[in-house]
Each structure stands twice: as C-alpha cells, then as structure tokens.
Simulated assay, not measured.
Amino acid sequence: MESMTLTRKEMSSLLLSLQGNHEQSPLTILQTAWSKNHQQACQKGASLPAFLTTEMRPVIEKVIQGIQFNGFSLQEIADLGSLIEYSNVSITSIQNWVKRDFKELFVIKEGRKYSINQAALLFIIDDLKSNLDFLSIRRLFHTLFFGREKDITEFIEPVQFYYAYSTMFEELDANNDQMFDIVGHTSTANSQDTLLDNMVKAYADRVAQSMTGISKAQQKGVSNILVISALSVQTSYLQAVAKRYYNATVFLDFD
C-alpha cells in the first residue's frame, strides 16, 4: 500500500480548513493533494485503483467522512505528522514533547483533546529541531507566540505561522526540488550563500510586514524566525536523504 503524502503547505492548509479559516474544504485540500501525486493515473482514467492502493490513516478517513474535529488525540496528531513529506514526527517524540520538553505549551483540561494550534506547534517543533535545541525553540516560541508580556497573550496563532513559512518555502522552491531556487550566482557575482541569505530574508520581511496586529519591532523578530523555519524545512529534506542512504548502506550490506 502506498502512503498518502502532504507538503507542509498542504498540511497547514488542512489544519486551517479544519479550523474554519481556509477557502477550501478539508476534503478538497486532500483531493487536490492526492490528485497532484497521481496525475498519470488520473489522466489514464485509473484513479479508482490508484486510490484503492493508497493507505488512509483513520484521522484522514474521518476528514473524508466530514466528521467535525474539536481536537486531536496524540495518536491522531502523530498520524497526521506521518503524512508530511520528509518529516520525522512519531508518537514517541510527540509524547515526550507534550509531557516533558514543552509541557507548559500543551496543558489541556481533563478529557479534552489537543487543539489544532497545538498540533501545529508539534509540527513546527519537528521542523525546528533539525537546526535548534529545545531550549532555543522554547525561546523562539516565547518571542513568536507570546511576546514579552507576562500574561502571555497570544498574538500569532501557531497554525497561521506554520502556514506562513510553509508557503514561503514552496514559493522559494518553485520547481519543487526541495531546494531554494537561487538565481544570479556566477564566478564574479555574489556568492551562493549571500544570494540565499538575501533572498530568504527579503521574502520573510515581506511576509512579516503583511501580518496585522504586531508592532514594527515584532515584525523584525517574526521575520527572523520565518527565515529559521524555512531553512529548517530544507534541512529536514537533506537529513531525510542522508538517512535513506545510510539505511540503504546498512540494509544492502556492501561488504
């Protein structure tokens, strides 16, 4: 069976839609994502057999059935995370994060499930950990989601931020090769790293400036965190490729 795969932008769109904050329905987002990955089968009129060989997690089956979500269980969040391309989300890591490493962010009332924003936070943690330790991630979260006020009034929703940097990454990777599309690099022009830095930061500045309800100073911090997050997505891809080659080397036993 083939597993369904979603990009981060598709996953963040799905979360926004489940929250009621996206122009497309959850089912439409899933249909579009699946069709994109099965273009040949759809063109040949073989969409039914292709769909029947696609593994659907129980949480996705609920979305297909139109079931309303008031929240997610940890297993449902792990199942959603497993659909994200080049992601390392697992139920074990999620349990560690909510019960130990980031427990102050995941307080829920007895009997209630985790919110859509808390699910987005877990996916953001998974991305950021490719470049940062947990202490650094907590500091970024304090700046990004709670500002400097002691009442920790939330001014940017995690799911909105997840969508922002996921969209940013995809638009800077127009050819979908999981690498930023850098132009202008020649032997006499700016170096590759300078071009990358300038391109990503300029885009992040525009996104941050478009956000309402935050100050100019906060926009600067948000812009920097957008850069970190988008770069972390690319890092996740590189780590996944390296891990695949490691597994192939061990499994195939070239000795």
Rank of each mutant, 00 (worst) to 15 (best):
S3V: 00
T5D: 02
R8G: 08
L14E: 04
L15C: 01
L18P: 01
H22C: 00
H22R: 01
P26M: 14
Q31W: 11
W34L: 10
W34E: 02
C42V: 11
L52W: 06
T54D: 01
M56A: 12
R57Q: 15
I60Y: 04
K62N: 14
V63I: 15
I64H: 02
I64S: 06
G66K: 08
I67L: 06
I67A: 11
Q68L: 14
G71C: 04
F72E: 01
F72T: 03
E76F: 04
D79R: 04
G81F: 13
S82F: 06
L83E: 06
S87A: 14
S90H: 09
T92E: 15
S93C: 04
S93E: 12
I94L: 15
W97N: 11
D101N: 10
E104N: 08
L105T: 02
F106K: 04
I108Y: 09
K109E: 12
G111K: 12
Y114P: 03
I116A: 07
A120C: 08
F123R: 01
I125H: 03
I125A: 05
D127F: 05
D127P: 01
K129A: 01
S130V: 14
N131G: 12
L132I: 07
L132S: 03
F134I: 10
L140K: 11
H142L: 06
T143H: 13
L144W: 10
L144A: 11
F146S: 08
R148V: 08
E149Q: 11
K150S: 04
D151Q: 08
P158F: 00
Q160P: 02
F161A: 09
Y162C: 02
M168G: 09
E170A: 13
A174C: 10
N175S: 07
Q178M: 03
V183E: 13
T186Q: 02
T186G: 03
S187L: 13
S187V: 12
S187P: 01
T188W: 15
A189W: 05
Q192E: 07
D193Y: 11
T194L: 10
N198P: 00
V200T: 07
V200L: 03
Y203G: 01
D205I: 08
I214F: 07
I214E: 03
A217E: 12
Q218K: 12
V222E: 05
N224T: 09
V227K: 09
V227C: 13
I228Y: 11
I228E: 07
V233E: 05
Q234Y: 10
Y237L: 02
Q239F: 05
Q239D: 10
V241R: 06
K243A: 00
F251A: 14
L252F: 15
L252G: 01
D253C: 06
